[in-house]
């Protein structure tokens, strides 16, 4: 293939992956605590690429090699449920899942069997130091901004709030994030807000604009590819014509 077709094909593939990221964002527009994924375009140059002798440019192709997660704050909506929590600012709740410690921004907690404060899937919420927070049934729960859980003035425990360098943790599905091996947890900087849940930070209007942009860029690349094909066809059919 000629370079126009290769570049255009590579760009089309990158836009398809952009659409996949956008489709997942929009599918999760109502997922509590969800953070949008954004693409990160970069240029691919093969290891044995040599510079063009005339211009000195190295042949590169647009690809999506990585994505980044937009950790901006989602809107809060009041639920009135005393076991709903949101984090205002940076940080994640720690959860002791059967697969190890996971982290989440979704503070839709409940009381599990035995009275432990748990996430929606029944895994206990981590207290500072890694333990559980055990609640008394029927007594109002009050949570202070630092994550301390109180019932009738008696402190039952303090929720663990941690933050990571964004490059060292990844989405693990079911609203969880998993830290990469060797990642160091820092104390979260945010405050805990009771009776509110954080909505997804996927903007519907912004996503609509992105959708149109991806679609039109794809269309332009498709046109570029057709032009490349036309040039090739002309080269084959016209230039090489023996009269």
């Amino acid at each position: 293939m000629d370079s126009i077709s290769i570049s255009a094909a590579s760009g089309m593939r990158a836009r398809m992956e952009s659409l996949e990221l956008l489709a997942n964002n929009l599918a999760n527009v109502e997922t509590g605590g969800y953070k949008a994924d954004r693409e990160f375009y970069s240029l691919y140059s093969s290891l044995d690429a040599t510079a063009d002798p005339l211009t000195g440019e190295i042949t590169t192709l647009p690809v999506i090699e990585k994505h980044w997660t937009d950790f901006s704050q989602g809107d809060f909506h009041a639920t009135g449920n005393q076991l709903d929590f949101a984090i205002d600012g940076g940080g994640l709740f720690g959860i002791n899942t059967p697969r190890g410690v996971r982290y989440t921004r979704n503070g839709n907690f409940r009381i599990g069997t035995g009275g432990a404060l748990t996430a929606a899937d029944g895994s206990p919420v981590r207290a500072l130091g890694g333990g559980q927070i055990v609640l008394q049934p029927g007594v109002a729960v009050e949570v202070l901004p630092d994550g301390s859980v109180q019932q009738g003035g008696v402190v039952s425990g303090q929720m663990e709030l941690v933050s990571f360098d964004p490059a060292t943790f990844n989405k693990a599905g079911v609203n969880y994030y998993a830290a990469a091996p060797g990642a160091t947890a820092k104390p979260g900087t945010g405050t805990v807000v009771q009776g509110k849940l954080e909505s997804s930070n996927v903007g519907a209007a912004e996503s609509a604009v992105r959708l149109v942009a991806i679609l039109r860029q794809f269309e332009m690349l498709q046109k570029a590819m057709l032009i490349g094909n036309d040039l090739n066809r002309a080269a084959i059919q016209e230039v090489a014509k023996v009269t």
């Binding site: 992956e17 996949e20 990221l21 489709a23 997942n24 964002n25 599918a27 999760n28 109502e30 997922t31 994924d37 999506i64 090699e65 990585k66 994505h67 980044w68 639920t79 009135g80 449920n81 839709n108 409940r110 929606a120 899937d121 964004p166 490059a167 990844n170 989405k171 599905g173 079911v174 609203n175």
Partner: peptide
Amino acid sequence: IIPSGLQLGLGTRASSNEIIFT
């Protein structure tokens, strides 16, 4: 090494509809 990879999510699902006892 690549510091952060490319992960493509596969959508959403309903996890629960809890009863709100206010």
